[in-house]
Design a protein around this nucleic acid. Sequence first.
DNA 1: ATTTATTATCGAATCGTTTCGATTATTCTT
DNA 2: AAGAATAATCGAAACGATTCGATAATAAAT
Lengths: 342, 342
Amino acid sequence: MGITIKDIAKIAGVSISTVSLVISGKGYVSQATRRKIQKVINDYNYRPLRSAQQLASNQTGNIGFITSDVHLSRSEAFYSRILLGVELEARNYDYNVLLSTVGEGTNIPKNIPRFLKGRDVDGIIIAGSIPEDLLWYIHDIAIPVVLIDYRLPDLQHDVVMMDNRHGIQQIVQHLTSQGLERIGFIAGSKNHPSIKERFEGYQITMEQFGLGNFARAEKNHFLVMQETSSDIGTEGIASILKNEPALQAVICANDTTAMGCLKELQKRNFRIPQDIAVVGFDDNYYAAISQPTLSSVHVPKIEMGVEGAKLLMDRITNPNKIYQTRTVPVEVVVRESSRVTT
Amino acid sequence: MGITIKDIAKIAGVSISTVSLVISGKGYVSQATRRKIQKVINDYNYRPLRSAQQLASNQTGNIGFITSDVHLSRSEAFYSRILLGVELEARNYDYNVLLSTVGEGTNIPKNIPRFLKGRDVDGIIIAGSIPEDLLWYIHDIAIPVVLIDYRLPDLQHDVVMMDNRHGIQQIVQHLTSQGLERIGFIAGSKNHPSIKERFEGYQITMEQFGLGNFARAEKNHFLVMQETSSDIGTEGIASILKNEPALQAVICANDTTAMGCLKELQKRNFRIPQDIAVVGFDDNYYAAISQPTLSSVHVPKIEMGVEGAKLLMDRITNPNKIYQTRTVPVEVVVRESSRVTT
DNA sequence: ATTTATTATCGAATCGTTTCGATTATTCTT
DNA sequence: AAGAATAATCGAAACGATTCGATAATAAAT
């Protein structure tokens, strides 16, 4: 079928190994032969066969990307964008990206990505939460791993996170600077590390602004275990308002939740933001076109993927490095839903 | 490093080739030896190394998934869901999925997915539009290809589409059954085959309902080349209303466009659906939670991916089969934005 | 009971690279 | 100018599977 390195060598009148050296850029090859060989390669449009390279070099040139099926099909395209970032960066290293989704259920071994069994990848990136025992399984394989927007307290890994605490801090600051003080908090999937950090950020910052009493009162939060959905916002705001009718603002742990919140408030004829200000987190596409437009914290998803890929490449070439956590900066985007003063 | 087929053979006391036969399920192996070998394989948790299999068998066990970067990061997760479907189905065949995005720009050869150059995949799936010359390039490689939600008139391929015409037909029927007759149409990226079919569906059905005159008048459509965005809806409805103030309903070629349309109408204090009914297409997540909730046509995205993967597997094992077009059914979901009568 | 067909097992070639060590050619030291 | 260091090239052994053909064992046919 295809043209092989052997053909190239014969045509160029050199040995196979010299051609290989030219391709990989390793070792010593004289300018003259290098050019000669390169010309033949170009002329015949030759590319080495990956599987042969893989077998001989014991490197696959592939990385695996694992995320849950639910995450991948999320409407906000949050993890899709992270995947995109990974793909973009992997390309710079001439790596392929293999995708595998896993169910939320904890069904090992059916859940185990095929590329792990066949030793098809040099390293993997895990985006978002996956079943804990699967993470342990992967950990035990001793393959380079980078986690994006996820982590387990008792497991050491390279990790990429967004700056959740600082994002919330900016929000609280923005709200209080407008004189709002009774600020509630709503979140789903509270076991997720990002959500946890956002809640902690809320508590810490409120404390700093002298609003610790309000922030500590349980009636002013709504935290549940469910997967992110707009229902959480709907239920959440209802629950808080029941006990705290004088609420002035509410921070939702993400935009989808905020959307549900918005909807419920409108149904009850609250004016937003005059009666209650609402802010989300993530800065979805829909934040910018919802009615009213939603203030949020912009998270650079693609960059998170890029950073993750870089970290992974680093770890693959340098397996004994100390583990790193990389935190990408975020920024509040103020829109109609929280702009009280003009 | 890892355990090899040689080790298994030695431990089981058989030849390498017999072990291979057990793994692949081909040829003749007695019950007794089969069990014996299988036991060793299980005990040692052995998996054949893919790259070695690939090299020896000249099959990769991989499929490539190509989509544009813009499509993948789309907020509606339309193509992410198709990807998910492909992944789910590929798993049933024990195939890996390699992902590559391509820029919208037409920069061959930088745009060429790496897995094509290294002959890393047995076939590829292309979801959504990609630069035309890239499609020609792929066509020339003569590798099995399936297109999902895309096609080129003068290029033969296996194709998966949604039933755009019938979806629109259902919409028009739904609207006219409520007495609405002056129904406009708004779409972006009008060169996309799905959008084209939706527009054709609009024209044909309107004709069937005796509303051909209205549907044929250019002032009642807004068709532009831009990529899908909510701005198209905003501009579109403004444009149509200028020439046709008595508009009763508008069909948007997708939900995102409809969102922009909704927003503009609300800004102008139109009541929806009493003054103007709005429907979208695709049935996004946000269609169900927007204000008002948006009527739309549900498209089973994951199933489209599944169908695509099936078609591709079929073509890989059977390269000379006649080309197929598979059309998945769609269904109107009526919500607040178009429910005039109660 | 011999021939023929079927089932079972194996040895060896093969797939297309990388890489190690050997060999030769060139350049640098003193 | 001889020996040492460096640069250039090559041959051959891996890498870990598949697969073809040969051979041996068993079953079926006459």
